[in-house]
Structures are given as structure tokens and as C-alpha cells.
Design a binder for these strands. Sequence first.
DNA 1: TTCCCGATTGTA
DNA 2: ACAATCGGGAAC
Length: 178
Amino acid sequence: MLPDLSNSVDGAKNLLGWELVHHTPAGDIGGIIIETEAYRQDDEASHTFRGPTKRTMPMFDEAGTLYMYFIYGMHWCLNIVTGQEGHGEAVLLRALKPTHGIELMQQYRKTTDIKRLTNGPGSLVQALAIPPTYSGQKLIHTKLELIPPAKPIGEIESTKRIGIKKATDKPWRFTIEL
DNA sequence: TTCCCGATTGTA
DNA sequence: ACAATCGGGAAC
């Protein structure tokens, strides 16, 4: 089961409250999605703004595909592709609230501080041990699983996106309190 | 082929 | 507040 991923802005909101779980040989690791950002093709801040490249090809694939990219020479970030095939758009997962496999996260993140396990896009990828080889694959074909919210989520806050220099006026960062 | 910089994080 | 660190993309 997947949330509505018909476009990136709605998808970014709809993904909040869903639980992302990675089923690994060492155990299940996961958490509830509490922060996302939307990127569209007609958006200067998006990797797809100037058309497809070898790296960004997965973003043009169908909704439910995964897109991972390497940033600042050391971090991997995970996106869930949205929209029709041929449209380059996706949702960046920025933070989770840990629910499963906290001991494994502490090991992979090399910290016991719960607040710092999955508090950024690079951190959550490291905590869940999500391999870059997932990029380009369909989420349902990987060991990742999305579980619908158990109870209704609270109010969604909409703010400016983090760490970008272009299209900074777009309020496409979405967060919830749990 | 070269150069520049980024959808960040950890440490001081 | 700031250094660490390197692949991709655009330009030459």
C-alpha cells in the first residue's frame, strides 16, 4: 500500500505520518515520517529542472520509484518519486521518529542520542542502512515498506525548504508534531 | 578535461 | 560558527 503520489507537493503531505520500515537480516529498522520536502520539474531547486541526466533518471520514472543521490561528498539522501512517468518530480524524506530497531540505528549512527538518529535526510538513510543500490528501484521491490498512519496525523506545518539557494520562496517543506 | 559547488552533518 | 569531502554538471 502506498500513499497518494500523484504529484510531489500532495505526496509530500500525504507521506507524513506513514511509517517507513527497512526489513534487514539484522532486524526491522524504521520510523514515522515527520518531515518531507517536495521538488517539481518546473522548480529551479530540483535536480530535474534542466532535464534528465544519468543521475536523475529515476526521478522521471513512475510514482513509487526510489531516487537516491550523494551530497556534500559524504551523505546519501532518499526520495520517493511522484507523478506520471516522464515527469521529473519527487519527495525528499528529511526526518523520521524512530519506532523500530533503535539499537541498530544507534550502532549505524554511532550515537545513542535518540534525537539524532533520524533527524536529517542523510541521517535517516544511514540509520536505516538503506543502500544506494535502491536508487532506481520500485519501493515495493525493495526491503522497504510503507505502513499507513495508525491514527490521524495532526496539523501539517508548511515552511520554506532547507539548504537550497534557488526557488527559496516555495513553501514546500512539510512537518508534523507527534 | 577542468572547475565549482551542493536538497548536509558533526564537532568546536 | 565552521570544516570536512567528492561526484555531477556546466563550461571551456
